[in-house]
């Protein structure tokens, strides 16, 4: 559980750094609230005109928004900032210092940088999710909750692997600072169930950029709409993603030439 320990340490350092800039707290609070309000207002506008969207009812979509904001927050707390720092490290050669530490390098680069204010999104998203589950009433059983937890973890693993692969590309192509933006803009599509999109976009959101696994599938498992085969398949896929991204990371690392490059 070295990963957890390191992550915790990064979190504490990040918190201590961030607390120096208190104004950021209010800015992030405003931004998170506005972001969530926007998503909910969008749902309200759509459901002002209809009772269901592609088979999804209002409360189910509110749950989806909750997970969308929460997962976005989790990615924003540690994965994205760490990946950005990794890419910068490759560009400037400062990765040298990371590689000389007696810890698994992939682990270290994955938890190096923390943006604790984004925890606000995690909290707000979770609150909305709880609210939505209460609205859904007795439809969420223990099994569904367990399946949701597993799917959420699998989804995060897939997103993490995907971002690691994108960031690892920096070993080959140095000037791709904003490649992570691809994920950010595709992720916006995740605020709606991927099932409503036309086939080509659905495929892209599932296989090219794994937004479906991060948001839609966990919520589907929560509201008992997920086939057991999809559940098993997702776990398998998450394992594959982890293995492949690790292999790719190793490959990239072997190309690293340090600051002199």
């Amino acid at each position: 559980m070295r990963a957890v320990g390191l992550f915790w340490l990064s979190l504490r350092i990040g918190a201590m750094n961030a607390l120096q800039y208190r104004a950021d707290f209010f800015i992030q609070l405003a931004q998170s609230t506005i972001g969530l309000g926007t998503a909910l207002a969008g749902v309200a506008i759509v459901f002002g005109q209809t009772d269901e969207l592609g088979g999804w009812r209002r409360d189910e979509l509110v749950a989806l928004i909750g997970v969308f904001v929460m997962v976005g927050g989790l990615v924003g707390v540690v994965i994205r900032p760490s990946m950005e720092r990794l890419m910068e490290g490759v560009r400037l050669g400062t990765l040298d210092f990371t590689l000389t530490k007696p810890v698994d390098a992939q682990l270290l680069v994955s938890v190096r940088q923390v943006d604790i204010w984004r925890l606000m999104d995690v909290a707000l998203g979770a609150a909305i999710l709880v609210f939505a589950i209460a609205q859904l009433g007795g439809r969420v059983g223990l099994a569904a909750a367990a399946a949701f937890a597993v799917m959420l973890l699998a989804g995060l693993a897939i997103v993490y692997s995907f971002l690691l692969v994108l960031a690892t590309l920096a070993f080959w192509l140095v000037r791709i600072e904003n490649i992570l933006v691809i994920f950010a803009s595709m992720y916006e599509a995740g605020r709606w169930p991927v099932g409503i999109y036309p086939a080509w976009l659905r495929v892209a959101l599932t296989l090219l950029v794994p937004v479906a696994f991060a948001v839609t599938i966990p919520v589907e498992s929560l509201i008992g709409r997920l086939e057991p085969t999809t559940l098993a398949g997702t776990i398998l896929l998450a394992a594959c993603f982890l293995v492949v991204s690790r292999w790719f990371w190793r490959l990239g690392l072997s190309r690293y030439t340090g600051a002199s490059a």
Binding site: Q49, L53, N178, V181, S185, M186, A189, W192, I196, L201
Partner: peptide, 21 residues
């Protein structure tokens, strides 16, 4: 190119939502 991708995607999202509705 990446920026254009984002520009293209956003209207598609709402387009899809509203045509579904």
């Amino acid at each position: 190119a990446i920026w254009l991708l984002g520009l293209l995607l956003e209207p598609v999202i709402y387009l899809v939502v509203w045509t579904t509705v």
